[in-house]
Amino acid sequence: MTAFGIPYVETQLRVARADFAVNFRAPWFEPDREALIVPPGTKATEYTGVDETATVSSGGRVRGLRAGAIANRQIAIYDKRAEVIQSNKLGWLTIWNAARMSSGHPAIDLSDRNTSQVWRFEMRLGSKQLRNKFELRNWDDIRNSIGDAFTNATRRIRYCEPTLDSNRARWPPHSLWRLFKAIIANDLMVNCCGVLPSDVIQANRAAKMRELDAQLCGLFVTRAAISDVQADDFEEFMDQHVAALMRLSDEHATDLNERLTKAKARYHLK
């Protein structure tokens, strides 16, 4: 931006999407849509759509799964080897072989699918997750808490090992999914703060409501005392006075919706 002569400040930066992917050499694996456990409301069909689960197959072999919306939270499990070959992205072969050779394993030969099959598990977080739920707006936010966001995502979506149990929620996580979660937890450990912004917002909201309730109670007691209300009559006084307050609100010069909007903006409680 400096080279183009375009000035900017940190507050103008906006992170709109973050992805975390792990490539597994697993010739024995084939995605199963039934094994993908997603939150209620997430569609799971074989129709290829942006916000739905997509089953991509070649002949009788499933090539990939996708669940969720890219603007929110999305998991993609697909045949990375096929993509590398079809798109001629041989740079990935160089990366994979460098990693394998450094750990004492032989290089991958893409001509042999039985030994070179690579599946990618990729979690994608869009703006609804980053900005709306986790309050991640700039690079400092990402460095501080992106690990919390991805860890939360792997709890909301799971790829499981199907069993005879009719309750899919009790299915155990697949071995590759356990490894996927472990890699996220390890690689993003320094990018976790352990507290979700939504938890902080909820705690602040509850504290403010308790504070206002205490103030309201004190005001009612004071109002009753001025009106010479006795303790035995206090409950009846409150019931009657609520009706009077409603009439006072109806007679207010400013519309109630406008007053509520201003009050929400003043406290910034989501």
Rank of each mutant, 00 (worst) to 15 (best):
L248V: 13
S249W: 09
Q230D: 00
R178Q: 13
Y159G: 03
R156K: 05
T2R: 15
D187Y: 13
Q12M: 11
N72F: 06
A225L: 02
A243M: 04
P172H: 08
V242C: 06
F134A: 01
R259E: 10
G104Q: 07
L269T: 08
N144H: 11
N138E: 04
G91Q: 12
K270Y: 06
R168H: 01
G126P: 02
S127M: 03
A153R: 10
R14V: 04
P39R: 07
M189V: 12
Y159E: 01
P31T: 09
S103G: 05
F20N: 08
V221L: 15
R124K: 09
T151I: 12
K89P: 04
V195L: 06
E135H: 02
A18D: 00
A263Q: 07
G64R: 02
A82N: 00
I183A: 12
N88K: 14
V242H: 03
H268R: 14
R61W: 09
A203K: 11
N144M: 06
R205H: 11
I183F: 11
S57D: 07
L90S: 03
N88M: 05
L110F: 15
A44E: 07
E161A: 14
R81D: 01
K262E: 13
S227L: 12
T151N: 06
Q240A: 10
N152T: 14
M209L: 12
R66K: 13
E10T: 07
A16F: 01
F121H: 01
H105D: 02
N88I: 04
E10R: 15
R100W: 09
D112A: 04
I201D: 04
G104P: 11
D79F: 00
A231Q: 11
A206T: 08
W92R: 03
R266S: 15
F121W: 03
C217H: 15
R247I: 08
E235D: 13
K270P: 00
T48S: 09
E211Q: 15
R168L: 11
I157E: 00
E161S: 15
A224C: 05
C217I: 12
D255C: 05
E10K: 06
T261W: 06
Q129C: 07
W119Y: 08
D250F: 14
T254S: 15
